[in-house]
Design a protein around this nucleic acid. Structure first.
Lengths: 213, 213
DNA sequence: TTGTCATCTGTCATCGACTGACATAAATTA
DNA sequence: TAATTTATGTCAGTCGATGACAGATGACAA
């Protein structure tokens, strides 16, 4: 990797760190792009060559997580049922966070604090999650041998996403506490859902929604 | 009601209609506040006295719906289980939409089209839904005689919200089609969830998450 | 009717997010 | 080193949003 690439990566990381620090101390809306750029000693114009918007820099880590979740799901064995695979992917993601080095873990914590204390960023997170949800549905549909437009894969992913989001609802920043909360919620989901609910419908039974009665 | 009040209401409605029309024809971001204000023949400054932001005018109807959903839930009889009450509240809301006069129905349709074709507005919708979710959780917790921080009310509302959102996911604008889609999804949820999953846990059984083992 | 008061509105000035255009500086490659 | 690509800075400008002030308008009492 050339000098240019490394320099860009360093600038990018510096911008994220500076932004998160300023967001934490002064608040998200009170922080200006000029301040972030000044901290890293680049021009404000350069900031926008790295990030599409002020929101983008705050949510860049969140976007990374979403991409990672999708990747983890894709790497789960086909033998796992869709919901199980989603849960395991989520566990893997949390494990990665817990194993991260101090720099990354710190970034993650600051990001969590900022996002959860800023309505605009919570909304942005929802947008990212919803965008990723489409891709998760596609993967789950593939595993079920169903169409992504069918209700079942959408429902399965919707249940999973609501559980995952419920984990982050409060001020749960510590990955360990978060993992505990996730397990509690998954156990509750387990108790509430019929066995085999996320399995393909038997060929003998009538298709539920696409061809009712 | 005085002349002043009526005038304000007319201005407000005119701003919403003008905004939705412009958003539909030119697109949300391509439309400026100046254009909306000019259409209604008020100053741009006045626009911001009626709506906090450009997003606010686009989502004012969505915000109304959220408030109505909460009100419908509150009016459901205590005898209904939480999830049933949520579903019935949603059905009532759809019924209200289907019974609305032409003016309101048209506004609703244009609002739906605009929101679903604009990522920023989808994000905003998510924010509104999430904000309302808190209140729904509080009401469900009250019905269960549980604490709003317990996992069960949060899970129940989360499942409901994900189902409700799945209804709106695609380009389903027609309330009748939307109602059909809702029924299909609720039927799927019914099949997937254990009987009594949204009932208070029996006193004999161990509390699931708040005091495990 | 008139005068007072509260409220609504327009004008002006300003800030901050964001973008396009152009010139410069730096790294890559030949 | 020369030529090319790519990153950065500067500048100008648009648009969303807000505060301050002054004028207009409806509400209300004498």
């Amino acid at each position: 990797m050339g000098l240019r690439e490394r320099k860009k990566q360093r600038t990018r990381d510096a911008l994220i760190d500076a932004a998160l620090d300023l967001f934490l101390t002064r608040g998200y809306e009170a922080t200006t792009i000029d301040q972030i750029a000044a901290e890293v000693e680049v021009s404000p114009r350069t900031f926008f060559r790295y990030f599409a918007s002020k929101e983008d820099v705050a949510l860049s880590l969140t976007a990374d997580e979403q991409r990672m979740l999708l990747a983890e799901l894709a790497s789960r064995p086909e033998s796992e049922s869709p919901f199980t695979a989603l849960c395991q992917a989520m566990r893997s993601l949390l494990q990665i966070l817990r194993e991260a080095d101090e720099t990354e873990a710190g970034r993650y914590l600051r990001c969590q604090k900022v996002v959860h204390s800023t309505p605009a960023l919570l909304a942005g997170t929802m947008r990212l999650v919803k965008e990723n949800e489409r891709k998760l549905v596609a993967e789950v549909a593939r595993r079920l041998g169903a169409d992504p437009c069918d209700l079942q894969p959408q429902f399965i992913v919707a249940v999973f996403v609501s559980v995952a989001l419920a984990c982050f609802d409060e001020r749960t920043q510590d990955p360990a506490v978060l993992a505990r909360r996730l397990e509690d919620l998954l156990a509750l989901a387990e108790r509430s859902l019929c066995p085999g609910w996320d399995q393909p419908v038997r060929s003998g039974a009538a298709e539920p929604a696409s061809a009712p009665r």
